[in-house]
Computed example of a mutant assay.
Amino acid sequence: MNVQIQTVHFDADSKLLDRVNEKLAKLKTFHDRIVGVEVYLVLDNVAHNIKDKVAEIKVYIPKHSYFVKHSSKTFEESFDLAFDSMVNRIKRQKEKALA
């Protein structure tokens, strides 16, 4: 599984990157044919004074690709919400394929 993590408008510390990698390793338990994962952590400055932290996850599986995006006040919360959404999406798609 090829994992790429990109940060936009900031530099992530190793603690955040380790947490993201640790969670992404768990994706293999939900689908065994994951080819690649891209994570984008974006510091979004929409209102010029309120900074939202956005996490985007793209997962590539043969013949499919999935995308989720969440934003909140911390990168950890944003990534956790996006990760949970991705897990649910993968589970739903896998159940649909087996049915």
Rank of each mutant, 00 (worst) to 15 (best):
S78L: 11
N45Y: 04
F67M: 05
K73R: 13
L24C: 06
F30L: 07
D52V: 04
L43Q: 11
K23F: 12
S71L: 08
I50T: 13
V46M: 11
V39I: 06
N49F: 02
F75H: 03
V54K: 08
F83H: 08
A25L: 10
A55S: 13
V46I: 10
E56C: 14
L27S: 09
H70L: 12
K26M: 05
Y66T: 00
K26D: 06
K51A: 13
V35W: 06
E77G: 06
V35H: 05
I57L: 12
A82W: 02
G36S: 12
K69A: 04
F83S: 06
V59S: 01
K69R: 12
H31K: 04
K73V: 06
F79I: 03
L27F: 13
D84G: 10
V37A: 13
V54M: 05
R33A: 03
V46L: 11
F79L: 05
N49P: 00
K26H: 11
T74M: 15
E56I: 09
H70T: 10
S71H: 13
V39M: 09
E77T: 12
F30P: 06
L43F: 12
N49I: 08
E76A: 12
L43A: 14
I61P: 00
T74E: 15
V54L: 05
V42Q: 15
I34R: 00
E76D: 13
I50Q: 14
V59W: 00
K69T: 03
V68Y: 15
L27P: 15
L41K: 06
K53R: 11
H48I: 10
V46E: 15
N45G: 07
S65F: 05
V42R: 15
K26I: 06
L81A: 09
E77R: 12
K23T: 08
K28D: 04
V37T: 14
L24G: 08
I57H: 05
Y40L: 05
F75A: 01
F30A: 08
V37I: 10
K63M: 02
R33N: 05
A47M: 13
K28T: 08
V35K: 11
Y40K: 14
K53A: 09
I61Q: 01
V35I: 07
A82V: 01
V35Y: 11
K58F: 08
I61K: 02
H31D: 01
H64D: 02
I57C: 08
S71G: 14
P62F: 01
A55P: 07
E76Y: 10
